[in-house]
Design a protein around this nucleic acid. Structure first.
Lengths: 352, 352
DNA sequence: TATATTTACGGGTACGTACCCGGCATCTTA
DNA sequence: TAAGATGCCGGGTACGTACCCGTAAATATA
């Protein structure tokens, strides 16, 4: 059993062009030292044979290593959501490590924009050939990627987008549509059709992503002519006490809220509050496959979770950099993640 | 920038064992010609260094090719469901082709068990090192895999399982739980809580998979003490006329059916029937991300689709064979696919 | 015209593994 | 005891590409 010899390599190209392998190699990597005439001749043969380099041999022979930086929120006691993207990053790393890629991870604190700036500066100081980041802080991220662009370092966004920036690509949810799905799920147990609340628990309550999600959420009710009042609740401090305080006040003001849609993974803190308040009449929808959230899904305090495959985002994000920088292959400008619906019944088989 | 030298190769092993590279190689491929003593010494060093062979170099140096067979239903006019697993197979093929793997696909007709037997025989005649198949016909598959076992050819099931057989692995849904989710979704628009129908449109109406799904479906109602009558409707002939005839009869007999759960991808033919009969009062749940099904999802004739990532099944199935046969790495015995819920709202972003 | 510099290219080795071939002991057998 | 058989092992080349180094010819400079 012999391997088919359908592939032509540099050797065949060299033979046909009456030059040495080294010269063909120079043309392939457009290094200097080849006359225009031979260069053209070789390029023609390359095209004619539809030459595909053998990546195995190429990476084997090359000694170059490529350094990539990853800039993500640190896993905190408050939420371990970012564990998942990191898992994806690690998986990608171990796959491409043998191809000469080295990944360094930098963490920032979601409650402290200054840490983002610090880490971003560290990345700019290092000699990195590409960056993967979650642009959680809008302004800080804008500043950072401006520097990247100046240094010609390609960058990839995951989880949330920053519009109008010439990033390499965005890998994450279609935020508007995600809110739209959240709205539909919110109507699942709606009876009197009075009020629903959309809750944002985050330092950055007027960021681009949040606005997009809320817009999608509202659009669903508009599109279906549902005369429902939507209460917006912003909770700037993410600790459990603040959540309890703000929610108590909000539910006191509007006691006929029938459904709550939390725009991020902190839905478990709302679930905890509702449980303590013995409010099982309010349906609760939120985001992300976290241990805490799944627990409340199982006790039916949470009705649905929406999830955007965070692990795959990390994996694909790093792979996108690998593809452009190592393989020189083009990547899609935006890659929308599926909008997965998790219930008590199907959660056991969900792939984060 | 130099590649880190964290990896030890055969050279280092040879050096430490005071033998040549060739001898290490003999041990690695447990070929003959090495004394027990040196063999043990080398194996100890291999373990100590946690030696991982460089697949790049290995496949580059090897001239062997490995042939794999794929046995799947042909895409028919009736349903193009099997396009998706084939896409996954093709994707895996193109990824591993360069590692010296050759894939040959055999198709059978879902309406004719004889074609399965023919193709199975053809595979047994060829010199294949592994088989990926969908055991759609229970008895025929049993016979086929018995021969595979005798010839020591590993086989992988996708889409549906055959219990109690020592296959390499099963990649597909947890059928019982899938039916359970289907039941929950069936209650979405239930009002009077009278009757629901579970419809099986297939030549093989008493196969293992169908029974598992129905059991899961019934269990949901039992677990939640819902006093609902479940009507079972078997439709042996899959053409549109037969479906119409059988459904007309069934709905005439039980005119208070509120929800229909179709146990496979042929839910679109039920949707077509309901549309013609102007029965938008019946909620309809079925399987798989097909063009026809999505169309009815968009017109809201179908409420929910359940999907088990058919493309990934094909991809992973082939990769499982690749892993065992080429890389010699172990694979999970069963790999349950997620039970994805598709609605009109999230369908645009579904990854089959 | 003689010398220095640049241009254009080929030879050859390395990457880590697979595997052929040949050689040196040790062991059989007559 | 000599001839062959066998067990055990090392040398060396190949896989397809990357890239260093050397060199002859072409061109520039004196």
């Amino acid at each position: 059993m012999e391997k088919e010899n359908t592939y032509y390599g540099v050797k065949e190209i060299a033979r046909r062009a009456n030059v040495s392998i080294a010269t063909v190699d120079r043309v392939l990597h457009n290094r200097s030292g080849v006359s225009e005439k031979t260069k053209k001749k070789i390029n023609d043969i390359i095209k004619e044979l539809d030459y595909q380099p053998n990546i195995l041999a190429s990476r084997l022979a090359s000694k170059k290593i490529i350094s990539l930086a990853v800039l993500l929120p640190r896993v905190s006691e408050e939420t371990d959501f970012w564990e998942a993207p990191m898992k994806g990053v690690t998986r990608a790393d171990s796959e491409i490590k043998k191809y000469g890629v080295q990944v360094t991870t930098f963490y920032f604190d979601l409650n402290d924009p200054a840490t983002f700036n610090e880490q971003a500066a560290a990345i700019l100081n290092g000699d990195f050939k590409g960056v993967l980041l979650a642009p959680s802080f809008i302004e800080e991220s804008r500043k950072f990627i401006r520097s990247c662009r100046e240094k010609r370092i390609p960058f990839v966004f995951i989880d949330s987008d920053l519009p109008d920036e010439d990033n390499l690509c965005y890998i994450g949810p279609h935020l508007f549509q995600s809110g739209y799905v959240g709205a539909k799920l919110s109507t699942y147990r709606l009876k009197e059709k009075h009020k629903v609340a959309v809750v944002n628990i985050s330092k950055e309550t007027d960021g681009y992503n949040y606005l997009q999600i809320e817009e999608g959420f509202r659009s669903y009710f508009k599109d279906h002519d549902l005369p429902i009042e939507i209460i917006r609740i912003d909770i700037k401090d993410t600790d459990s006490l603040s959540v309890t305080r703000d929610l108590t006040r909000a539910l006191h003001k509007d006691d006929d809220i029938e459904a709550i849609f939390v725009t991020n993974s902190r839905v478990f803190s709302v679930a905890a509050f509702l449980e303590k308040s013995k409010r099982s009449d309010i349906s609760l929808i939120g985001y992300d496959y976290l241990k805490e959230n799944i627990a409340y899904l199982n006790t039916e305090q949470i009705d649905f979770l929406i999830c955007h495959k965070p692990e795959e985002q990390g994996y694909r994000g790093l792979m996108a950099l690998y593809q452009t920088l190592v393989l020189g292959a083009p990547v899609e400008k935006t890659y929308f993640m599926p909008i997965d619906i998790i219930t008590k019944e199907n959660q056991a088989f969900y792939q984060n």
